[in-house]
Write a protein that binds this DNA or RNA. Structure first.
Lengths: 226, 226
DNA sequence: GGCAATAAGTGATAATTATCACAAAGCCTC
DNA sequence: GAGGCTTTGTGATAATTATCACTTATTGCC
């Protein structure tokens, strides 16, 4: 038994009217016009604060998010509180877990946390299915989503099954650095330990090792990747 | 670097005409009549011998299999020859990797091996996509397939990330026993090691441990689960 | 500044898994 | 029934990861 994920209960902020022009600029070429109109009418625009937990194992999912900007971290949780990072969702991504859950009225089996401030459109479950038949571009989008998440999961399995912790740590740091677009980012050893399904001490030691090798620079709540 | 998967190059046997009556009995209620007709006309019936490798990383996939009976083992392979079991395909299952690969004209990223003599229908890629729009029951089938494989992958991640080897070994044995429908099955320690992404010695030792605990009975090429 | 809370560092030690190097056993073929 | 191949057993040892029990920063706040 270990400490569960730190949860900030920041409320979801800023429900907004969706502007069709705005959508058009974002989904230019991806979705057909009629679909964009429906999206604007039916979808809910949201801004999620960093650290907010969007989804939790056991919760029912009634909508599928499409991320406009920012990023969402998807974790798998064990029964006794351990966790493992599955993948990140970024711009124009959607979540396959939501899709499968929605389309089958099932409970979530994963945890979703905003890594940074994130803007998204939330589409209610009924429409997700309806649009698959109605709009070819939506069908393509859904299939592409499944495929991307499938790839992501295979990537996660590669890491977990075949790589040692120090390699996994390094590639996690690289991913985080890429995600935030800069070499310094805010993170605690504890949080990393959670994402790599190990304990804080182990991560602290491995980080120290990396620091000695000149690969990173450490300070409280921060890691700089060299 | 370790020994790669043993490959038997048994040719695929028994291409046969597909009988619509036969299909009807198998897919009763699952597919609509017109789809069954197309399946009979366009699909290829195959019988795969045990040990035959259906798919290999890097190969292009031009058809999606639907398993009628038997079972197919899906493995993820590392660049340096290590492997990990992802899941089994059984009756009426299809393979999401084939789906994603087909729909995106991509190379396989997994290995598929027949665990036992397996009967399947192979559907060419063009039809897979066409039918998604044409037949609602096919669309449902494709989505259900994605969802099942997604669940399977999450299950694989649970095992690999959160369970110790001895537990993973035991649940693998249980799965194998279930798969073949009896408590004794044919397998080498080497093969198990491959599926659990570890080495043969480790498996031999863990099996001996299980034998001492009275959980299994070991003999050459065979394991009996108590 | 002093205090509390959180984060990070670290020694000691154990558990788990990996590797190497053989030996022994089982099975097939001639 | 004697080799030869494959499979399994096992000791020795190393590497990796996990745990426990602290100590030592660092930060925010009163």
């Amino acid at each position: 038994m270990r400490t569960a994920l730190l949860i900030k209960n920041t409320p979801i902020a800023n429900f907004m009217e969706i502007d069709i022009e705005f959508l058009h600029s974002r989904f230019n070429g991806l979705f057909e016009l009629n679909l964009l109109k429906e999206l604007a009418q039916i979808g809910t625009y949201m801004e999620i604060e960093e650290g907010h937990v969007l989804m939790r194992p056991g919760a029912y999912i009634r909508s599928v998010p499409i991320i406009l900007s920012g990023s969402i971290k998807i974790l798998r949780s064990d029964t006794d509180g351990r966790e493992a990072l599955l993948y990140y969702l970024g711009g124009m991504d959607s979540c396959a877990m939501s899709l499968t859950c929605c389309l089958n009225r099932r409970k979530s089996e994963i945890t979703a946390v905003a890594e940074e401030k994130t803007k998204l459109i939330s589409v209610p479950v009924e429409k997700v299915e309806e649009w698959v038949s109605k709009y070819s571009s939506w069908k393509q989008f859904v299939f592409a989503t499944y495929q991307k998440r499938f790839d992501d999961l295979l990537g996660a399995i590669d890491q977990i099954a075949f790589r040692k912790l120090d390699e996994r740590l390094l590639s996690l740091l690289q991913r985080k650095s890429k995600q935030c677009g800069c070499s310094v980012f805010t993170v605690t050893h504890e949080e990393i330990a959670g994402e790599l399904a190990t304990s804080r001490e182990v991560i602290s030691r491995l980080l120290k090792q990396l620091e000695k090798l000149g690969r990173v620079k450490l300070s409280r709540n921060k890691i700089e990747l060299m």
